[in-house]
Simulated assay, not measured.
Amino acid sequence: MIDIDGVDFAKGGGLVPVVVQDAATLQVLTLAYMDRAALEETVASREATFFSRSRGGRWRKGETSGNRLDVVSIMPDCDADALVLKVRPRGPACHLGSTSCFGAEDAPGLGRLARLEATIAARAAADPATSWTARLLAEGPKRAAQKVGEEGVETALAGAAGPDEELASEAADLLYHLLVLLRARGLPLQAVLDVLDARATAGG
């Protein structure tokens, strides 16, 4: 996961700062610190473990609250004296109950799509009588695909002749129904992003 021996703990007096990001939305969740032992424990357990400067010792995130951070990747910066930890949070990252320690704002930019994907997945277990998302998923991929087709036409018409507000609204409907279709087929949004990444790498 990471070459622990290559991390420069000495520069920070035995600690390195750690930027913690949601692996799906890339939202910055918190800033913490690790000593070598905390990093070793994080690698071994694949759960974020930090060094608390106020407590003077190591603590695993979520030990009390249950809001643990499952580690996806650990990346050092160019000087190997700071880390980026990408995680899958099991609840709010902030002790105040918000998703991020940096304010109550939800995932910004394209991260909003990943948050929407997670919401759609959660709604799959809802009552189809009260949740449009649950109903679409219960009706299967063909129904979701039909809605993508309908919304695609409406988006195209709005793009050709409608005002900006209408185009934005129809495009939002299209993106939502496309994510529902992906969920109905068992495909994550990341599969689409991987295709785009491969095309960009190939120079397409």
Rank of each mutant, 00 (worst) to 15 (best):
Leu69Arg: 09
Phe51Glu: 00
Arg46Glu: 11
Ala38Gln: 01
Asp22Leu: 01
Phe50Tyr: 15
Asp35Trp: 01
Pro76Gln: 09
Phe9Gln: 08
Gln21Ser: 13
Arg60Ile: 11
Val72Phe: 08
Ser45Trp: 00
Lys61Leu: 02
Ala23Val: 13
Asn67Pro: 02
Asp5Thr: 03
Cys78Glu: 14
Val72Gly: 06
Val19Tyr: 10
Pro89Tyr: 07
Pro17Asn: 10
Tyr33Leu: 14
Ala37Cys: 00
Asp22Gln: 01
Gln27Asn: 10
Ala37Lys: 04
Ala48Asn: 02
Gly62His: 10
Pro17Trp: 12
Val18Ser: 04
Gly6Gln: 11
Ser73Lys: 01
Gln27Trp: 09
Gln21Cys: 15
Ala44Phe: 02
Val20Glu: 04
Val71Pro: 07
Val87Glu: 12
Val87Met: 12
Lys86Tyr: 11
Val16Trp: 04
Gln27Val: 11
Cys78Tyr: 01
Ala48Val: 12
Ser73Ile: 00
Leu15Gln: 00
Ala24Phe: 10
Arg55Gln: 13
Phe9Glu: 07
Trp59Thr: 03
Trp59Pro: 07
Val43Asn: 02
Val28Gln: 14
Asp79Phe: 08
Ser45Cys: 08
Gln27Arg: 15
Leu15Tyr: 00
Leu26His: 15
Thr64Tyr: 10
Glu63Cys: 08
Asp35Pro: 06
Ser52His: 03
Pro76Asn: 08
Val71Ser: 02
Asp77Lys: 05
Arg58His: 04
Ala23Trp: 12
Asp5Cys: 01
Asp8Leu: 11
Pro89Arg: 05
Gly12Val: 06
Leu39Met: 07
Glu47Leu: 15
Arg58Thr: 09
Gly56Pro: 04
Gly6Phe: 02
Ser73Glu: 12
Phe9Pro: 09
Gly66Arg: 05
Arg68Gly: 15
Asp77Ser: 08
Ala10Cys: 02
Glu40Asn: 00
Leu83Asp: 06
Leu29Cys: 13
Glu47Arg: 14
Ala24Cys: 07
Phe9Gly: 07
Lys86Thr: 14
Ser65Ile: 03
Asn67Lys: 03
Met75Pro: 01
Phe51Ile: 03
Pro17Ala: 11
Phe51Thr: 02
Val7Asp: 03
Asp5Gln: 04
Asn67Asp: 09
Ala10Asn: 05
Ala37Ser: 11
Tyr33Gln: 12
Leu31Phe: 15
Val28His: 14
Thr49Trp: 03
Ser73Cys: 03
Ala48Gln: 04
Ser45Leu: 09
Asp79Arg: 10
Ile4Gln: 01
